[in-house]
Computed example of a mutant assay.
Amino acid sequence: MSLTLLFKSLLQRKVITALLLVQLTLTLALLSNSVLLSSQAYQLSNQPTGLQLDTTLAIELKPTDENLIVHPALGDLIQRQLAALRQIGGVRHAAFSNQTPLLFGGMNGNVYVEGKQDTTNIEMVPYNFAEAELFDTLQMTLLHGRWLSAEDKNTDNVVITDKLAKQLFSDSHLAIGQQTNGGNIVGVVADMMYQRFASDQYFGLFFNRDLNRADYGYRLLLQVEPQAVAAVRQQIYDSLRQVEPEIDIQQVVSLRQLHRDYFEQERGLAILLSVLSGLMLVVAMISAYSHALFHGVQQQNEIGVKRALGASKQRILVEVLSESWLTTGIGAALGLLASYLLQQQLATVISLPALPLWLPLCGALTLLLCVTIATWYPAAIATRVSPATATKAL
């Protein structure tokens, strides 16, 4: 069938055609970006964390007594709480930290090699106050040097993560003994996922220092036997209340829950766009079905005359479908542009990779298939028009 005749046919129904094109354009844009977001959310949530997500519990606390917020009363309180938690059956290790892994933000500072600030300075590195048992509590892997000991308390000795060491020294084993603005490096541990909005989510620097104040609270971390996680969680509140009633236990969560929250924004947006694109796809199929059915009824006489002049059913079927294919093709072309525009807007809100060309092209093929399925029945009805009936109506 001639493209000119197809365009003329579409122009006869300008408003209906325009609405269908808008619908197809938005459907393809949503479909492409929802798949992109879903793919990214899956990849992010399956990155190695370097952590025991299911058996590590994080407790967020804040003293309600002003006298307990400052050192040394604060340090004494933390040690008493840790001693009580270690008495709970199933608790393997317990440690204090100023912040937990898998946060969006927290206590950060810059890190650079002494004397080379201009070339090695790294912004936004998580600063973690750690004690000797934090190594076992987080089940860290030591790569080079040693972990912090009790003798390192309030000294300038620090441990850093492997990725941070490589960023500063190109090879992590070269980091041992090097002096940074944060302190002297005595050890390098395997990477852990620490902060989402740090310079890199695997960067981390660990001190063994007292926490001077806890105006915003502090964290206790537990490493628990897998079969005892639920039982331990039930006993935490009572154990901590017995140590000190003047304490606000803000939350007790596993690192698994923090990990889910870590990527909640991408996951939630991916689900929302997937639902919207699915609904738009259904609506586009309904619109294509209605459009083809209405058009077929309007052209019954014309189709009957064509049948009387020798047009086969297959030719009529292709003619009706060709109109839907042309409309979908134009909508897909506009949708390709809309897909990239939507991706650019989403990228200003969340971290989003570039949209690969194959994704909207696959979306366009999916759209074409759905529209073809939706149009098939109305097109099949059009082929059943009797030449005799059509000519009598003229």
Rank of each mutant, 00 (worst) to 15 (best):
8 K>Y: 07
6 L>Y: 09
352 L>Q: 08
53 L>N: 11
368 L>P: 05
281 L>H: 11
16 I>L: 14
268 G>N: 14
384 R>E: 07
229 V>A: 00
287 S>Q: 11
36 L>Y: 09
77 L>H: 05
115 G>D: 11
72 P>H: 00
236 I>D: 02
101 P>Q: 10
300 Q>K: 11
54 D>I: 11
392 K>F: 05
65 D>R: 13
309 L>D: 09
56 T>H: 04
353 P>R: 08
265 Q>Y: 09
175 A>I: 00
260 R>T: 13
266 E>S: 02
26 L>V: 12
227 Q>G: 09
149 S>G: 15
85 L>Y: 03
146 R>C: 13
270 A>Q: 10
181 N>V: 05
246 E>W: 09
50 G>T: 04
333 A>T: 12
116 K>I: 00
325 W>L: 15
121 N>D: 14
8 K>V: 00
62 K>C: 08
92 R>M: 12
73 A>E: 15
266 E>Q: 11
349 V>Y: 11
194 Y>K: 12
386 S>I: 01
374 A>R: 02
166 K>C: 13
81 Q>R: 11
54 D>R: 09
121 N>Q: 09
35 V>Y: 11
209 R>A: 15
386 S>P: 03
87 Q>Y: 01
331 G>W: 06
167 Q>D: 04
204 G>Y: 06
354 A>E: 10
325 W>D: 06
22 V>H: 06
349 V>L: 13
348 T>N: 14
33 N>V: 05
391 T>C: 10
194 Y>W: 13
357 L>V: 15
215 D>L: 13
98 N>C: 01
235 Q>F: 08
188 V>F: 01
359 L>R: 05
81 Q>S: 10
223 Q>Y: 11
29 A>Y: 04
355 L>Q: 03
15 V>Q: 12
291 H>A: 15
177 G>F: 00
151 E>W: 04
343 Q>A: 09
128 N>E: 03
25 T>Y: 02
385 V>W: 10
9 S>T: 13
165 A>W: 01
241 R>G: 02
47 Q>K: 07
161 T>H: 04
306 K>H: 12
160 I>V: 11
39 S>F: 05
338 A>I: 01
14 K>G: 10
214 A>K: 06
109 G>R: 10
270 A>L: 00
57 L>P: 03
300 Q>S: 12
58 A>F: 04
42 Y>I: 07
173 H>I: 03
25 T>K: 09
199 S>E: 15
127 Y>K: 13
50 G>E: 00
21 L>C: 11
109 G>M: 07
8 K>D: 13
381 I>Y: 12
306 K>F: 08
246 E>Y: 12
311 A>H: 09
33 N>W: 02
361 L>G: 04
161 T>W: 06
26 L>D: 05
212 N>Y: 12
55 T>Q: 10
84 A>H: 07
347 A>P: 07
42 Y>T: 06
148 L>H: 08
154 N>K: 00
60 E>G: 09
249 I>N: 00
369 L>P: 04
285 M>R: 08
167 Q>L: 03
51 L>A: 02
68 L>T: 08
107 M>C: 13
31 L>K: 06
105 G>T: 15
350 I>A: 01
2 S>W: 04
322 S>A: 13
